[in-house]
């Protein structure tokens, strides 16, 4: 059972006190340009997921603490958390640089577009 730490209220506890909320940094196209979304874009948003063996970025909620959502960077093989960061933030720069595969591509684009999440 993992130990999770909420970056908002500082509560640290068992994973059962938290809620795992899947992949982080998924962009919802309808919030931006609802009139121009292709079926494939909508599919990507709903279903296509980064699924790396290794460093991964995901959403958690401090279920039994402050109730806030936040982000975490975690290794899916060792299950070690590498960082906890705010729901409106990008991960620490060194983690973005360590990311592989589709995540590396994602952060490259995000950084190119400016760091606003």
């Amino acid at each position: 059972m993992l130990v999770v730490k909420c970056p908002v209220c500082g509560a640290e506890g068992d994973e059962t006190d938290f809620h795992a909320g899947g992949q982080a940094h998924v962009r919802r196209p309808a919030s931006h340009d609802p009139a121009n979304i292709s079926d494939a874009e909508q599919r990507d948003y709903l279903f296509i997921r980064h699924n790396p063996k290794g460093l991964h970025f995901e959403r958690w909620r401090c279920d039994r603490g402050c109730g806030k959502w936040f982000h975490a960077a975690r290794d899916t093989l060792t299950l070690e958390f590498k960082a906890f960061y705010g729901i409106a933030e990008l991960p620490p720069r060194e983690l973005m640089e360590q990311a592989n595969g589709p995540w590396a591509e994602y952060f490259r684009q995000r950084l190119a577009a400016g760091t606003k999440p």
């Binding site: 059972m1 993992l2 068992d14 994973e15 059962t16 809620h19 795992a20 699924n51 063996k53 991964h56 995901e58 975690r74 899916t76 093989l77 060792t78 299950l79």
Partner: peptide, 14 residues
């Protein structure tokens, strides 16, 4: 299943 991605072949006790 555990609710988070996991490649470790070891799940959580709860």
């Amino acid at each position: 299943t555990d609710s988070y991605n996991n490649y470790s072949q070891r799940g959580s006790f709860p």
